[in-house]
Amino acid sequence: MLDKEFLLKIGLAEMLKGGVIMDVTNPEQAKIAEDAGAVAVMALERIPADIRADGGVARMSNPKMIKEIQKMVSIPVMAKIRIGHFAEAQVLQAIGVDFIDESEVLTPADENNHVWKHDFKVPFVCGCRDLGEALRRIAEGAAMIRTKGEAGSGNIVEAVRHMRAVQSEMRKIQTLSKDEMMACAKNLGAPLELVKYVHENGKLPVPNFSAGGIATPADASLMMQLGAETNFVGSGIFKSSDPAARAKAIVLATTHFDDPDIVAQASEGLGDAMPGLEINTIPEEELLSKRGW
């Protein structure tokens, strides 16, 4: 599976490691993100907290707005498509987006199938809640996985749940014997070949990032210590009282996630974090992480 095209896609994900990818909705926010040290920006029309509040169908962003952001910054620009909406992906590839996020934050276009991502030259990132979901997306061609968390909630609990699920399932697979591998693949609903890869290497064949609920420098440090290789921060920055300062602080805490003194310094004087939501106050049908399989 590691053909050259795929190596090139994973290669860009490798370059983003140890960094912070920030949701932005206009060129000014993109500039703030780049100036704060973001390794990439995710261009979208509404950040998840607003999508959640506004309701209605959330779709791919207007290409004109994405192009304006591409002009404004020199770091990679990512954008989201609805799950299964390969025509939106074709549009994003045509305008030269650097990474496509097939995202549960937008309203799914296909409840049965995700995009066959091997058909594209642009790399894809997909969300997951557990190892089976991660391996299914990788089999379809995702060059990066992010645990879903619960986007727009400002609550880290789902991000932690999903990252722990992935890491703990990977540890379990490493202890299996050869004759237990097929049953494991069956139970996970994942290709045997990828289960074997995890058994032998103790990690996913693509980088594993974290998303959905990071609002503070300590949240960023927590996810890195739990095994995230980079943090996506969505609503957490531009729903806070001082986005530029918070963005810089989260970048610093991601780099020095293992140094509590620096995370402490980064956490000082940031103003208010975004208001968070208790997950159990969100109606079941409004949970974004339940979208996709």
Binding site: L16, P76, V251, L252
Partner: peptide
């Protein structure tokens, strides 16, 4: 290494 040079230089300064 490889990565984002803008991020490197900000962190080097910081």
């Amino acid at each position: 290494p490889g990565g984002e040079s803008t991020t490197f230089l900000r962190l080097i300064e910081k």
